[in-house]
């Protein structure tokens, strides 16, 4: 509407390297349990990856390793040229550039929607409050709920909460976005509004890794689909061949179950 007003920098910041995420020979154990087994995955700039697989196959664990919510024990993970080690500085550096959206939204219930969105830009990006609010309102418009800025998360529907969560991540202008089953805690009629938001984001060229069972979304948006089973990547393929002609037995079984 007001095109003349000076806009803050809102495009996703360009990645430093052509490779957004590089996982090489990654292993992880929970105690004795070998949850990730020799994961090799290279995600290039602007690529949209959808990860699917049966429950307990390690999908969440894998994407949570990318922003170090889980620590891997063997192998190498490099995020936009920064290797994840025990160095806290680097971990924070990676987390600043990688946005994450959770299944259960995880909004901060004691803060308003606007405060949820401006918190990290103010404290981590050191933006002024005014500037952070401007950015926040921009993204609230993008996810189509600018009128909810003053409410508390508990006053919103699930779909609205998840869109706020997406906007919250976007306010940090991340280079990479991680989604962990963003629609599976939602009522069916709210799934679409969240998926639409994600499609928009994909259209803008955001690098995305998305754990989801929404196969329609995968078909429409993904460059590649990663199928995981029992801690391993079993099959990686573009959507067309992945659905039309799955190679591995496990993939065939999974697809037959999920696509009735």
């Amino acid at each position: 509407m007001d095109q003349q007003a000076p806009k803050p920098e809102l495009k996703p910041a360009p990645l430093r390297t052509g490779v957004a995420v590089d996982m090489v020979g990654v292993h992880k154990w929970f105690g004795e349990f070998h949850v990730l087994r020799d994961i090799n995955l290279r995600v290039t700039r602007g690529e949209r990856i959808v990860i699917c697989g049966p429950s307990g196959s390690g999908k969440s664990t894998m994407i949570r390793c990318i922003n170090r919510l889980e620590e891997h024990q063997q192998g190498k993970i490099v995020v936009d040229g920064v290797e994840l080690t025990n160095d806290l500085k680097r971990i924070d550096e990676v987390r600043r550039e990688v946005g994450m959206v959770f299944q259960h939204f995880n909004l901060f219930p004691h803060l308003t929607v606007l405060e949820n969105l401006t918190l990290a830009p103010i404290w981590v990006r050191k933006m002024s409050k005014r500037q952070a609010e401007e950015v926040a309102l921009h993204y609230l418009k993008r996810v189509k709920i600018p009128e909810q800025a003053g409410k508390y998360p508990g006053q919103l529907s699930g779909g609205q909460q998840q869109r706020v969560a997406i906007a919250r991540a976007l306010c940090m202008s991340p280079k990479i976005m991680l989604f962990d089953e963003p629609t599976s805690a939602l009522d069916p009629e709210m799934v679409k509004e969240v998926l639409d938001t994600m499609v928009h984001l994909a259209d803008d060229g955001m690098t995305m890794l998305c754990v989801t069972h929404e196969m329609g979304f995968a078909r429409q948006v993904a460059n590649r689909i990663v199928f995981m089973d029992a801690g391993q990547i079993v099959e990686v393929n573009a959507p067309e061949p992945f659905f039309a002609n799955p190679q591995h037995e496990r993939t065939k079984l999974f697809l037959s179950q999920i696509l009735h």
């Binding site: 994450m100 259960h104 995880n106 901060f108 918190l119 404290w123 991540a169 940090m172």
Partner: peptide, 14 residues
């Protein structure tokens, strides 16, 4: 809940 910690960490708050 653990999710509160995770959301805060994922935003890069130390």
């Amino acid at each position: 809940p653990k999710g509160q910690y995770e959301a805060a960490m994922a935003l890069g708050l130390g």
